[in-house]
């Protein structure tokens, strides 16, 4: 069974952290992943930086630009990750935009992910229908879970379609926004989380966008399986460095 599915079967709320590979320094990737696992994080999204990250706000844009300037490439990231499974056992997901994957070759990329022990991909600009028709068979051949996003504007019909082609979890974007654009949740979001939870989807939901502390983590996971933190973690990393990652995780989980 894929590590993501195993994790989703655990009886707990999951904390997933996104970071941009190659930031703050080109060789921080392994150290960040190991520190995150040791601090009690359940799942990690490794950001493959892209020159034009359309769905991201200023924090992740800046970390992506810096990572590319530091020399991060797809090849470099795979090289860094080649022995990651000797020291890390939690699920690892690569999150990025579709063009770098397309240039690497979709099948070659998936094959490499399987060799390394990557469990899934999140590619926000690969639309569900294109995935379904052209790439699903390739992802499945290499045991990869592809994760789709939904938003408060996504229709029920489309959510059911996305659920039907997913085999891990659904990434629930908390509000119509780019990453890092908001702080705190209102009634509108809570109602949305509840509405989706009542749809009885086959895939559990994990909330992303707008989670930055214990309060928002608790709100986001009341009706869902877990939450993803990106921009807030990158800001913390910029200010406090890798050695203090455990403090960040403790603040979120209030341990």
């Amino acid at each position: 069974m894929n590590r993501i599915n195993q994790k989703l079967n655990q009886d707990k709320k999951l904390l997933s952290i996104y970071f941009t590979a190659g930031y703050p320094n080109i060789d921080d990737t392994i150290s960040i992943i190991q520190n995150l696992e040791q601090s009690g994080v359940d799942m990690i999204e490794i950001g493959l930086p892209f020159s034009d990250p359309l769905a991201d706000g200023p924090t992740i844009q800046a970390s992506s630009t810096a990572a590319l300037k530091n020399g991060m490439t797809t090849e470099k990231l795979f090289e860094q990750l080649k022995d990651i499974r000797k020291s890390v056992s939690i699920p690892l997901i690569i999150m990025g935009y579709f063009n770098p994957v397309l240039q690497y070759g979709v099948e070659a990329f998936c094959k490499k992910c399987q060799e390394i022990g990557i469990d899934g991909l999140i590619l926000p600009d690969l639309p569900a229908d294109v995935y379904d028709e052209e790439y699903k068979a390739i992802f499945e051949k290499y045991g990869l879970i592809n994760v789709f996003l939904i938003t408060p504007q996504t229709s029920e019909e489309r959510i059911r379609y996305i659920d039907s082609i997913s085999n891990g979890f659904i990434y629930m974007v908390s509000s119509a926004s780019t990453t890092g654009a908001q702080s705190g949740f209102g009634e509108e979001q809570t109602n949305y989380f509840e509405r989706i939870s009542k749809m009885n989807l086959k895939n559990p939901q994990i909330v992303g966008f707008g989670i930055s502390n214990n309060e928002t983590f608790t709100q986001a996971t009341k009706f869902t399986k877990g939450a993803i933190i990106g921009s807030a973690f990158i800001k913390y990393l910029t200010a406090n460095g890798i050695s203090n990652i455990d403090k960040f995780t403790k603040t979120i989980l209030k341990k």
């Binding site: 769905a55 579709f98 639309p127 938003t151 996504t154």
Partner: peptide, 11 residues
């Protein structure tokens, strides 16, 4: 061609 857009833009 096509529409390679994040889900947020889909609607």
């Amino acid at each position: 061609g096509g529409a390679f857009i994040p889900e947020m833009l889909y609607p």
